[in-house]
C-alpha cells in the first residue's frame, strides 16, 4: 500500500511553492497539489464520511485552482489577485477539514497528540497570516511590504510544520505496516 502522507507532503509543496523562471508560468501548478491531496486522502482510512467530504473538497479546489491558473497563464487576469486570495482562504478551510479527518484516524496516542498540536499551530499561523495579508491591501507601500513579509513568514513556518508532520506521519505509517506484516 502507498504512503498517504507522502502524497499530502507533495500536495502542500505544489501549492506552497510558486516557482516562476524566465517568464515561464508556475512550474509547480497548484491544481497538481490538490490532485495529490485528493489521492492522499483517498489512501487514508475513512471515518464518518469525513474522508469523502474532504476528498470531494480537494477535487472542487483542483478545478477552481485550474481556472485561476488558466486565468494567469492566458494573461486575461479576469479574477486577478482576488481569485488567488480566495483560493488561499479555501485552502485554509480545506486544511481544517483535512485535520478533522487526521485527528480521528490514528490509533497511536503519541501521534494523535502530535496531530493535535500541529492542527493548533498550523491553523493559528495560517489564519493570522491571511488576516494580516488582507489588511495589507489598504496600507502604504512601506507598511504593506512589512505586513506581507510577516504574513509570508507565518505561512512559511506553518508549511515547514506540516512538512515535519508529514515526515513523522510516513514513519508512523511504515511502523504500522511492519507490525501488520509481523502479525501475519
Amino acid at each position: 500500500m502507498k504512503d498517504p502522507y507522502n502524497n499530502l507532503y507533495n500536495g502542500l509543496c505544489f501549492i506552497f511553492l510558486d516557482l516562476k523562471f524566465f517568464g515561464l508560468p508556475d512550474i509547480f501548478p497548484d491544481f497538481f497539489g490538490y490532485m495529490f491531496f485528493a489521492y492522499g486522502i483517498h489512501l487514508l482510512p475513512s471515518i464518518r464520511k469525513l474522508k469523502y467530504w474532504t476528498r470531494n473538497f480537494a477535487i472542487v479546489l483542483t478545478v477552481l485552482s485550474f481556472v485561476v491558473e488558466l486565468d494567469q497563464w492566458t494573461g486575461t487576469l479576469l479574477l486577478g489577485q482576488i481569485g488567488v486570495q480566495l483560493l488561499q482562504f479555501l485552502l485554509i478551510l480545506f486544511m481544517y477539514f483535512l485535520f478533522q479527518l487526521l485527528l480521528h484516524i490514528h490509533e497511536n496516542k503519541a501521534f494523535e497528540a502530535k496531530t493535535f498540536r500541529t492542527y493548533q499551530i498550523y491553523m493559528t499561523l495560517m489564519l493570522c497570516g491571511f488576516v494580516i495579508q488582507s489588511f495589507a491591501i489598504n496600507l502604504d507601500a512601506n507598511l504593506q511590504e512589512v505586513a506581507l513579509t510577516i504574513s509570508i513568514l507565518l505561512q512559511l513556518i506553518a508549511f515547514i510544520l506540516f512538512v515535519f508532520y508529514c515526515r513523522s506521519g510516513s514513519k508512523y505509517f511504515k511502523s504500522k505496516q511492519q507490525s501488520n506484516v509481523q502479525s501475519f
Partner: peptide
C-alpha cells in the same frame, strides 16, 4: 480559540467567518 484547542463548534466557525469578513 486555537490555543484553547477547539476543533469544532461556534468559536471555530466564527474565526473563519470573521477572517473572510475582514478580507
Amino acid at each position: 480559540v486555537f490555543s484553547k484547542g477547539y476543533t469544532k463548534g461556534k468559536l471555530v466557525f466564527i474565526t473563519f467567518a470573521l477572517s473572510l469578513c475582514v478580507w
